[in-house]
């Protein structure tokens, strides 16, 4: 019988040194109390390939300039706080790895567009949430379930709107939409996605109300199918598909 024996000739495993890189970040800074115009400021940070842009921003804030201002809460792609424009594309800073970017060039980081800039990477999200509230994103049933019973839904009915339940309201889609940039009255993709989530829910009975709200000059018909929202969504929601389904539901008059 033979047992596995450690080959004595094998060299003792040396602790592997993980390679780190100096990455240049150019951040669009704006302090409303001092600056008249936002300005680009560059920072050099030492990063590992597996670090994220959020880690780079933390390093800047903790080690170089404590005044850098940005939102983040969970830091794991669930809360939707840290949507920002990284190298010209809307992404979540906590889901963008350094190794996925070209670090031979500086990385540009700025606030999302189309919403009023408040400070550094923070925008006023009120207009965004105002549109979200307008589509009534909550269950409106017309009947009560039987005493002690739940509202039953088949697997197929649940799957109908599964994609749009994934939204984390980070505003990456709405603030990537060229229609929203020029026309702030437009509901925007995120509000329509959240309306879609209830319009196609078999337990909900207020689809007509929501379709009426979205059948507006500033509603779904503003969508020009540029697909920017679908490309921007960090959750991979087929946003333009959802908007197209709402358009078709309005034309049919029912979900």
């Amino acid at each position: 019988m033979s047992t596995a024996v450690l080959d004595e000739a094998a060299p003792a495993p040396t602790p592997e040194v993980i390679e780190s890189f100096t990455v240049t970040l150019i951040v669009r800074r704006y302090n409303p109390e001092v600056d008249e115009q936002p300005k680009w400021v560059d920072y050099d940070v030492e990063m590992f390939a597996t670090d994220r842009i959020l880690d780079a921003l933390h390093k800047i804030k903790w080690e170089q300039d404590g005044s850098l201002t940005f939102r983040r809460s969970c830091a794991h792609g669930i809360c939707g706080s840290d949507a920002m424009r990284i190298n010209g594309r809307n992404r979540l800073a906590c889901k963008t790895l350094i190794k996925d970017l070209d670090i031979s060039k500086p990385i540009y980081v700025e606030a999302i567009k189309g919403l009023p800039l408040e400070k550094d990477l923070i925008v006023d999200m009120d207009p965004f949430f105002e549109s979200f509230r307008e589509v009534q994103p909550f269950l409106i049933p017309s009947s009560k379930p039987g005493a002690g019973k739940e509202r039953i839904q088949s697997v197929a009915d649940r799957a109908r709107f599964d994609d749009t339940t994934k939204c984390i309201l980070c505003a990456a889609c709405t603030s990537s939409c060229p229609i929203f940039w020029t026309d702030g009255q437009y509901f925007g993709p995120a509000a329509i996605v959240n309306a879609h989530r209830f319009i196609f829910d078999s337990r909900d009975d207020a689809a007509k109300v929501r379709l009426d709200i979205l059948n507006d000059k500033e509603g779904v018909w503003r969508c020009r199918t540029t697909f920017n929202c679908t490309d921007a969504c960090p959750r991979g929601i087929q946003v333009t598909q959802a908007i197209a389904e709402v358009k078709q539901a309005i034309m049919r008059g029912k979900p």
Binding site: F227, T240, Q241, A244, K247
Partner: peptide, 15 residues
């Protein structure tokens, strides 16, 4: 193409 995106149910997938 835009008409197909709007009216064909698979239009957005193949845009």
């Amino acid at each position: 193409r835009i008409i197909l995106i709007d009216f064909w149910s698979k239009g957005t997938r193949y845009q």
